[in-house]
């Protein structure tokens, strides 16, 4: 009999797809944060699927303002709690997708972290602007096909690697930065708890495979997340005061093909001429992770 499941604070009845990665990410985040928190959620799948007026799936206080200002809104809440003497142990948590965190909201995130507010920001990285129809973001991995970086006669899909957000946030002097994955619930719960209990601005980057956007069956969400880690394309590590302090080792890394062939967004690499060269490039990215983070 394993440890009891922590309580979560998200209600069923939300409009997430069957097998939704954002729902899992929010569920685990709340397990780590506990009920004494205020959640700030920029526009995206998670926000839309949980709050169709007059309903809300959130059992903790929650606010949605706009797409690019989640961290600024969170800064204001943190300041208000301090000014009103209501801070106590209440945690302020921002949670947004890769689009809102890494692209349009990065200005606001940078400002919040530079100012050192006591808050936690969780990026649910499903590697595209999912809510608007799977468009390319700076979190979209190399050669992934999205609706604005599609594979085609003269294209292998997204030509850029993922933006390295954890490094950027660590460079802001964040006392704690960690990557995690919804494929490892207890890891995510532990890291979110640690982040919210660490004073100052802390950052969690959570990998979240999206069945609808990536093209795989909704029953495989957790399995796909684990595959990303097992192929070393998604390294799991913690950084404290800018230094990597803990790494999840992968004893026998799987070849990236196992991960790529299971998703429609990479299918073109197995059918197009030159596709195998591209797969080698992706393997090189995984090998670099193994080397740099010491995953083996």
């Amino acid at each position: 009999m394993s440890k009891p499941t922590p309580k979560t604070y998200l209600s069923p009845g939300h409009r997430g797809c069957a097998g939704c990665c954002d729902a899992l990410a929010a569920k685990f985040m709340l397990m780590g944060a506990g009920p004494d928190c205020i959640v700030v959620n920029p526009t995206g799948c998670l926000e839309v699927m949980t709050t169709p007026f007059p309903e809300s799936a959130w059992e903790v206080p929650w606010i949605h303002s706009l797409f690019e200002n989640g961290p600024a809104v969170a800064s204001g809440i943190e300041a208000a709690l301090k000014a009103l003497g209501r801070k106590g142990n209440t945690k302020v948590i921002g949670v947004g997708g890769d689009g809102s965190t890494m692209d349009i909201g990065i200005r606001s995130l940078s400002g919040a972290f530079e100012r050192g507010h006591d808050l936690t920001y969780v990026c649910i990285d499903n590697e595209a602007y999912m809510n608007t129809g799977v468009q390319r973001s700076s979190g979209t991995p190399f050669d992934a096909s999205t609706t604005t970086s599609p594979a085609g006669k003269v294209s292998f899909g997204n030509p850029r690697p993922k933006k390295n957000m954890p490094a950027i946030m660590a460079a802001h002097g964040a006392p704690y930065v960690a990557t995690t994955s919804i494929g490892y619930p207890r890891d995510m719960i532990r890291k979110v708890k640690k982040a919210t209990e660490t004073e100052g601005p802390t950052y969690i980057h959570a990998h979240a495979p999206c069945p609808t956007g990536w093209g795989f069956d909704g029953s495989k969400t957790i399995e796909m997340a684990k595959l990303a880690v097992q192929t070393c394309l998604w390294p799991m590590y913690e950084m404290e005061k800018g230094e990597i302090t803990q790494v999840k080792k992968v004893k026998n890394p799987m070849p990236v093909e196992e991960y790529l062939k299971a998703q429609k967004r990479f299918k073109h690499l197995f059918t197009m001429e030159g596709g195998d060269e591209e797969i080698k490039k992706i393997q090189a990215l995984a090998d670099w992770n193994i080397e740099y983070f010491g995953l083996q």
Binding site: N69, A72, G76, I77, R86
Partner: peptide, 15 residues
């Protein structure tokens, strides 16, 4: 943009 956004959060928190 952040100036007014921060006030949105703060006002909603009761400030």
């Amino acid at each position: 943009f952040s100036a007014i956004s921060a006030l949105v959060g703060a006002s909603a928190a009761g400030a």
